[in-house]
Design a protein around this nucleic acid. Structure first.
Lengths: 114, 114
DNA sequence: TATCGCTATATCTCATCAAATATAACGACA
DNA sequence: TGTCGTTATATTTGATGAGATATAGCGATA
């Protein structure tokens, strides 16, 4: 059997996407680099796109997910709030569990139908 | 809590998409209408797109998923093979189970982290 | 007070993908 | 043997989204 099952999960708020794999990757890069522009660069993403993603995330979430500062030492920066860290952790846990669940489901179906 | 979790699953063969929600919807429409062009129309999809999807599906699957005929009474038509029907059934079962699983997972996380 | 790297935002260009259009071939049936 | 509604395929047109570019403003620090 050469078939593989794949999945993509995301969290919505008010029928708008809040958090998916791309935004989680960006959040983790922000956590690592301390800056939105460096995070974007590390993911080979334009600053504009990264900013748009984080702007939408911050506006739609119940509480701020990242905080930013302009000017000062280093020019400014961005970092995750505790709430943001929890969101990332929850997302990754669910995502991992989903993969494992689907692999099991696929095996069940293969046994029956193919 | 206004957050909702969503998912999309698909089956790949050789790193190419084989079957996802769109193709399953098309297969069911073919089953209902007996024709690829009618199925496409019922989903407001161009014939070309529908044909391309089913061509890729048939070529990548281990066995044919639909059979087609040209000319004759009614001009021809398309129908699912038994293998195709099993694929659809398996996909929908897994997809349904995945939704239920994710809803439970979401509740767990909400309880802990938000 | 000049510098620096960052956030924040608008605008324009381009590539990619989808849709629309056109056409050939087929075979049962009247 | 002509008609009809399909399948099958190429080509052209159009729209949407991503990327590139440009610019302003900020504040700690030297």
């Amino acid at each position: 059997m050469k078939y593989k099952i794949k999945s993509r999960i995301w969290i919505e708020a008010d029928d708008n996407i809040l958090l998916g794999e791309g935004r989680v990757a960006l959040l983790k890069a922000i956590e690592d680099t301390g800056s939105l522009s460096k995070a974007a660069k590390s993911l080979k993403m334009s600053y504009k796109k990264a900013w748009s993603l984080m702007d939408a995330l911050n506006n739609r979430a119940e509480k701020p997910v990242i905080t930013t500062s302009i000017g000062g030492k280093g020019g400014g920066g961005a970092e995750l709030t505790d709430y943001g860290k929890n969101l990332v952790k929850a997302f990754e846990t669910i995502n991992q569990n989903c993969w494992e669940f689907l692999d099991q489901e696929m095996k069940k179906q293969l046994y029956h139908d193919f």
